[in-house]
Amino acid sequence: MKKDLTNRWNVSELLLSLSVLFVLLFFTYGIFGYAPYIGFRFNPPDGKILAVYIQGKNEPTLKEGDVLVRVGANSLDDYHADNRLAFFKGVKPGDTINVVVNRNGTELAIPWVIPGFNQLEFNIRFFNIWWLAYIFWAVGFAAQLLLRPKNSTLRRLFIAAFT
């Protein structure tokens, strides 16, 4: 009876770690495959454009140091107020989005063409901290498989690593 309970607990632990791995994989796809490649990067707290990966063909175009005021119909304040509001949700390569920026105190409206996948933007995403999530998952999983005795402290350890 006790062995049955232990086995069931082991199976549920394994399911937990596999579920966490599934979530990690899903969001990794989100980072690389779902989030649109918009051709520039901005600092979310203040809207400052940190890098422009693809230069727009027409003037005016976005420049590093510009501060986002509005993207399409949504202002930076709207973006800050609602964590579900995405500036670029559903945009496709070739779509034109009206981006309003503040450059040296002057507001400029820029028709920004979404470039789609580009190597520079991919590299910035790739060489980032997302992979640390897998390190923590692996540590938790290894603790689950290898460390004994399997007590509540050990369970807290791998839950902490997963969460």
């Binding site: 899903f26 989100g30 579900r84 670029f88 980032n128 640390l132 999530a133 923590f136 938790g140």
Partner: peptide, 24 residues
Amino acid sequence: MGLWLIFGSISAWHLLEGAILMHV
């Protein structure tokens, strides 16, 4: 920490509820 990191990695886009899940 793994989930927090992956949610945090996508949170700036506000996609897939990433920002909310990072806070949670």
